[in-house]
């Protein structure tokens, strides 16, 4: 009997480990199956492309968030930085400020510069002045949103008939959306940086044990500033693409709550919220799960509020599964 119990114990541990690694994959497949059954059009390739287009901001911002959380921090300013990037580009493109020539190129450059400045501010305050990441990025969250509303003068900035409008809806041969290409690119770059570059190891080391990291000669200040700048940079790209696809930058709603989706994706993906080992693939799958929940709810004509409740429940279950149950 003791043997039976021991066997059961072994199975339980193996199952636990397995769920930890592949839980997100199963949840993803489950959602696909549910949708395929309830909606015959779901498995069409176009639905897939749409999923990848809609999940775009979550997927790429979750990769930026992955760096931040792995380093032991958190960045709640992502959504506001998306807005400031989209807004900055729109005002320059629309020639609202006479000081700047009307130029798409300049618009994009300024959007990136301003976003990187917010990222630098986050990283600088956190690493140099030792401030709590959640507090610092919360202030950036407020300031960046405020700045966007200020430059847009409170109005939705729409634009049409510019080459910029074409970017967000661009389809490559085979009807492949541009978003898909960018997603693949970002995932590959992230994987390379985390698995093969010194910087990736250092980010995870700082998240695991900041004191030891310092004693290993890692320049923690530099690495932390970089991490927050990466997060803001990616947020800016997301903001620009979303505004391009919708032909507008809405200072109030662009990127609203995007940081929550990004954090949720990283959490469901199994990266420890206190920092350390970065899980890339499961993070991406989790980002798609989050979008799939919304799609599932929409396609079945259920009120959107349910999507939020579902997301919340899934996060809590996922984090429970990922927990170290050593005892």
């Amino acid at each position: 009997m003791a043997e039976g119990r021991q066997k059961a114990q072994v199975y339980k541990t193996v199952l636990n480990e397995h769920l930890k690694k592949f839980g997100a994959v199963y949840a993803f497949l489950l959602l696909i199956i549910i949708n395929a059954i309830s909606n015959e059009n779901f498995l069409a390739i176009n639905t897939m492309w749409n999923l990848l287009i809609q999940a775009f901001p979550i997927i790429i911002t979750s990769l930026g968030m992955l760096f931040v959380i792995s380093s032991g921090g958190i960045d709640v300013s992502v959504g506001s930085v998306m807005a400031v990037a989209g807004g900055m580009n729109a005002v320059i493109m629309n020639g609202i400020y006479p000081a700047f020539p009307r130029s798409i190129f300049l618009g994009i450059v300024m959007a990136l510069v301003v976003s990187l400045m917010f990222g630098f501010f986050n990283g600088f305050m956190i690493s140099v002045f030792n401030m709590q990441p959640i507090i610092v990025t919360l202030t950036t969250y407020i300031i960046a949103r405020g700045l966007t509303q200020l430059i847009a003068n409170g109005k939705i900035l729409s634009f049409s008939n510019t080459p910029f409008n074409a970017v967000g809806v661009l389809r490559l041969p085979g009807n492949v959306p541009i978003q898909f290409i960018i997603e693949i690119l970002f995932v590959l770059i992230t994987a390379f940086v985390i698995k093969r570059m010194v910087f990736g190891y250092q980010v995870q080391a700082i998240g695991e044990n900041p004191q030891a990291a310092k004693l290993c000669g890692i320049q923690t200040t530099k690495v932390q500033i970089m991490v927050y700048m990466i997060s803001s940079f990616i947020a800016a790209i997301a903001g620009l693409l979303v505004s391009s696809r919708t032909s507008a930058a809405d200072p109030t709603n662009l990127g609203a709550l995007a940081e929550m989706d990004a954090i949720a994706a990283v959490a469901i993906g199994g990266t420890s919220m206190s920092g350390g080992k970065s899980r890339i693939l499961t993070t991406v799958i989790s980002a798609m799960i989050i979008q799939l929940i919304t799609i599932t709810i929409n396609m079945n004509n259920i009120h959107y509020a349910y999507a939020r409740i579902m997301k919340g429940l899934i996060i809590i279950i996922a984090v429970y599964i990922q927990q170290d149950k050593k005892r």
Binding site: R196, V198, Y201, Q204, A205, N209, A212, A213, L215
Partner: peptide, 28 residues
């Protein structure tokens, strides 16, 4: 507190300081 990175591998723990020496353009 000041030595190990508990959830990283033996390999990563041992080479963390040497990484910059065994890398080119930041690639290990």
């Amino acid at each position: 507190v000041e030595g190990i990175f508990p959830h990283m591998s033996v390999k990563e723990n041992m080479t963390i300081t040497a990484l910059s020496r065994i890398s080119k353009f930041g690639v290990v």
